[in-house]
């Protein structure tokens, strides 16, 4: 969760540099009481300026999902994955491991692939959240999806939305990958049916198709 780290590193005012004691107090609050507002400093900055502590009861939050603002009332402990699945009926992101290992819940947060099970919904406020539903907006398949269909990069399909989102984010940053790059880039997603052969080909093929449109030349083996 980068918001927390950034705020610790950069206190709002230079002369209010943190003491170890302040830091521990702040950390204690975060652990025992609940969580702090995403845009506020994550630590109690001074004795007379109490940190705004949220929860444990539900609080109003706003998430920007697929370009649309969604207002929810959630306990601060609710993950982005549960917010999507249980509160917004957006079930494309799947719950498979629920601990940041399998990637079945992958969504794109400000352009970066993240595990939605490992991000709290409140921490995703103010960010652009792209889900598989948004990637197939208007019922039109995204080119990565088309490549998955063509290469049969799925069997039961449960891990597929996560793989598609991870592939999309990966290809945005690596438009011309080698097979080895794909294996590293998609190494954070797991499949039990064993469709990696198809996923590998789909990712390379999607890159090739996009480069072709732009007049580039792919070097990845398909």
């Amino acid at each position: 969760m980068s918001w927390k780290k950034d705020k610790v590193r950069k206190p709002a005012k230079p002369n209010e540099a943190l003491t170890r004691r302040d830091f521990l107090q702040g950390a204690g609050v975060a652990v025992s009481g609940g969580l702090l507002v995403g845009r506020e400093p994550a630590i109690a900055a001074s004795p007379d300026e109490k940190a705004k502590v949220l929860g444990p009861e539900a609080v109003p939050i706003t998430l920007r999902i697929n370009g649309k603002a969604q207002k929810l009332t959630l306990e601060p402990r609710v993950t982005l994955l549960d917010a999507l699945r249980n509160h917004l009926d957006m079930t494309g992101a799947k719950k498979m491991c629920d601990r940041g290992t399998c990637g079945a819940c992958t969504v794109i947060l400000d352009g970066k692939a993240v595990y939605a099970c490992s991000v709290l919904a409140i921490a995703a406020q103010g960010k652009e959240i792209l889900t598989i539903e948004g990637l197939a907006a208007g019922g039109k398949l995204h080119p990565v999806m088309t490549a998955f269909v063509e290469h049969d990069a799925h069997q039961c399909g449960f891990c597929t939305p996560g793989f598609v989102m991870a592939s999309k984010a990966f290809l945005d940053k690596n438009p011309n990958p080698l097979q080895q790059d794909v294996e590293e880039g998609l190494g954070g997603n797991l499949c039990r049916c064993g469709v990696y052969v198809g996923v590998r080909q789909a990712a390379l093929d999607a890159a090739k198709a996009r480069l072709g449109e732009k007049g580039g030349k792919a070097h990845g083996k398909v």
């Binding site: 079930t91 494309g92 990637l135 197939a136 999806m145 269909v149 799925h154 399909g157 597929t160």
Partner: peptide, 16 residues
Amino acid sequence: GPAMASGQAKYSYDIN
């Protein structure tokens, strides 16, 4: 394929 790749396929886990 299209339903799976686009996240539209509804599994028992997805039934709300």
